[in-house]
Computed example of a mutant assay.
Amino acid sequence: MSYFKYVAMAYAVFFIVLAWDFIVPRLQIRQQLREARNRVVRAKRAAATPVEEELSR
């Protein structure tokens, strides 16, 4: 009886989990940085918009 398939599958699962632990945090950081940049841009736009005043003659 050979344990080759068992060992191969164990290594495959190990490398999949290792890749997942490597990739997912980077994706989450990129998403959070994008959201922070968007908030800054929105805040700058809101500060730059002129305040509406009533028209007077």
Results as ranks from 00 to 15, higher is better:
R26E: 07
A46Q: 11
R37N: 14
V13S: 01
A48K: 13
V40C: 13
A47M: 03
E52H: 04
P25T: 03
R39T: 10
F14Q: 01
Q31R: 05
E52W: 08
R37E: 00
K44R: 14
R26V: 05
K44W: 15
R45V: 11
A10K: 01
F14H: 01
L55S: 02
L55E: 07
L55T: 07
Q28G: 11
R45H: 11
V17H: 04
Y6K: 12
E54M: 04
F4T: 02
W20F: 11
E52T: 07
R57Q: 12
W20V: 13
L33E: 12
N38G: 06
A10N: 08
A47T: 01
A48T: 07
V40F: 09
A46G: 07
F4D: 00
Y11W: 13
M1A: 05
A8S: 06
L33I: 06
A10M: 09
R30F: 11
F22D: 05
A47K: 09
M9G: 03
A19Y: 03
W20N: 10
K44N: 09
F4G: 01
E53T: 00
Y6T: 12
Q32P: 00
V13E: 05
Q28C: 09
A48M: 15
E53D: 08
F15W: 13
Q28R: 07
A12S: 10
R42Q: 12
V7F: 15
S56C: 09
S2Q: 09
A8H: 01
A10L: 11
R39V: 07
E53L: 09
A48I: 12
L33G: 00
V7R: 12
Q32M: 15
R34K: 12
R45K: 15
M9L: 01
D21K: 00
Y11F: 13
A47R: 11
F4Q: 06
M1P: 00
I23G: 05
Y11C: 02
I16H: 04
P25H: 06
E54N: 13
R34A: 06
Q28D: 13
A10W: 00
R39L: 08
R39S: 04
P25V: 02
R42L: 10
T49R: 14
R26A: 05
E54L: 04
E54Q: 11
A47C: 03
L18W: 06
R45F: 14
L55D: 13
P50C: 09
L18I: 04
Q28I: 15
V41S: 10
R39P: 02
W20A: 12
V17W: 13
A10E: 07
D21M: 05
E53V: 01
K5W: 06
A36W: 06
E35I: 04
Q28P: 00
R26Y: 04
E54W: 01
A47G: 08
D21V: 02
F14G: 00
P25F: 03
P50Q: 15
A12W: 14
T49E: 14
A48E: 13
A8G: 02
N38Q: 15
F4L: 03
